[in-house]
Amino acid sequence: MRNHYGSLCTEMYEALHPAAPEDELGFYLSYARRGQRIFEPLCGSGRFLVPFLERGFDVGGMDSSEEMLAKLKEKAPDAQVVCATVEEWQPAAGKFDYLFITSGSLSLFTDADACRAVLRKVRGALRTGGVFAFAVDTVAAREPDSAGYEVGASVKTAEGLDLILKSKYRYDEATRTQFSPGIYELYDGDRLLRSEPMDFQTHLYGPGEMNRLLREVGFSQVKAYSSFDKAPAAPDAALESETLLYECTA
């Protein structure tokens, strides 16, 4: 399944990203208010959702990976989360005050029509005046094409086993799609215990591309930032900043 976070992928993700970066977390927390209804699609293992809960916010979430949600539930057993794809999600109209999608995860929707449908669904789920904050990867984040798989990360599991990620890269200029297939391998010494392939793909946004989509689906105000301290993004920021951040008002 494309972009699916399986058990080995989830274990490595937790080892490499045990907590949300403070500057990124602060950006998303800056829009949250007491008494609001908040929701995080693509919440993963909860490295952002759990800090929201710990601060007393009314927040729920959704992810298509059972493995990631199981990790979230270990951290916050009472968290209100559901296992579903964004395509399956059917929120009531005008239900939320604030929605957020972190870590460039909106770029996982590589098809323009699919991304447009997600944005429309988010827009419809927000109350008038509600805020949607998110990030996307840009063409500045493009990885050089590689001939074959190379080890990109290696961690020790709690059991003392070696978990390795091998990746390769190919970029399609016509569609601005970054193909990053990977293979997770679990070793006990030199003995391979298990492997897990992942067909990872992201869309890398060019200048003005996301702004046009947001206007098209009906957001009344759109602000783009090039950093978590909300420095306004220049029109061609996608050529220099690997991530662009957006604040949109319904």
Results as ranks from 00 to 15, higher is better:
194 R>C: 11
20 A>D: 02
210 M>H: 14
247 E>S: 02
37 R>C: 07
125 A>M: 11
23 D>P: 02
242 E>F: 00
100 F>K: 03
25 L>E: 10
100 F>A: 02
249 T>S: 02
194 R>G: 09
72 L>P: 10
111 D>V: 04
88 E>G: 05
91 P>I: 03
61 G>K: 06
239 L>F: 02
163 L>G: 07
236 D>K: 08
189 G>L: 09
92 A>V: 12
119 L>S: 01
115 C>D: 03
98 Y>K: 04
1 M>I: 11
120 R>Y: 00
169 Y>K: 06
41 P>S: 06
195 S>G: 05
227 S>D: 14
71 K>H: 03
22 E>V: 15
49 L>K: 07
218 G>W: 12
51 P>K: 09
7 S>Y: 01
81 V>R: 09
201 Q>V: 10
150 E>P: 09
207 P>M: 06
172 D>T: 04
112 A>Y: 01
199 D>I: 06
171 Y>T: 06
173 E>A: 07
215 R>G: 10
12 M>Q: 15
186 L>H: 00
42 L>C: 12
95 K>N: 05
59 V>M: 12
106 L>W: 05
199 D>K: 10
24 E>V: 02
164 I>D: 10
77 P>Y: 01
158 A>W: 11
113 D>L: 13
156 K>A: 11
16 L>Y: 08
121 K>H: 07
52 F>M: 15
133 A>V: 12
62 M>Q: 15
51 P>R: 11
48 F>N: 09
144 P>F: 14
207 P>N: 11
43 C>H: 03
158 A>M: 03
226 S>N: 03
204 L>D: 09
40 E>I: 07
156 K>L: 13
233 A>H: 02
182 G>Y: 03
94 G>D: 05
31 Y>P: 00
131 V>K: 13
150 E>W: 15
168 K>N: 13
149 Y>M: 15
43 C>R: 02
17 H>T: 06
215 R>N: 10
89 W>T: 06
233 A>V: 03
226 S>P: 02
76 A>R: 04
97 D>Q: 04
10 T>S: 15
31 Y>D: 04
113 D>E: 14
55 R>F: 04
139 V>D: 12
35 G>K: 06
169 Y>V: 08
108 L>W: 00
198 M>N: 14
220 S>W: 03
158 A>N: 14
73 K>S: 14
107 S>V: 02
14 E>Y: 01
74 E>G: 07
235 P>V: 07
93 A>W: 04
202 T>P: 04
136 V>K: 13
14 E>K: 13
247 E>A: 00
223 K>C: 03
154 S>H: 10
18 P>A: 05
67 E>C: 14
92 A>S: 14
243 T>Y: 03
244 L>D: 04
203 H>N: 09
42 L>D: 00
18 P>G: 07
21 P>G: 02
89 W>F: 13
136 V>E: 13
36 Q>M: 14
185 E>A: 06
159 E>V: 08
39 F>K: 08
209 E>N: 12
208 G>L: 15
242 E>D: 05
232 P>L: 13
36 Q>K: 01
100 F>W: 00
36 Q>F: 05
16 L>I: 07
83 C>Y: 01
20 A>R: 01
181 P>A: 10
31 Y>N: 01
41 P>I: 10
107 S>M: 00
129 G>C: 08
114 A>C: 03
71 K>I: 04
73 K>C: 13
81 V>I: 11
183 I>N: 10
238 A>G: 03
159 E>A: 15
219 F>D: 05
196 E>Y: 08
250 A>C: 10
238 A>E: 08
205 Y>R: 04
46 G>N: 13
106 L>Y: 02
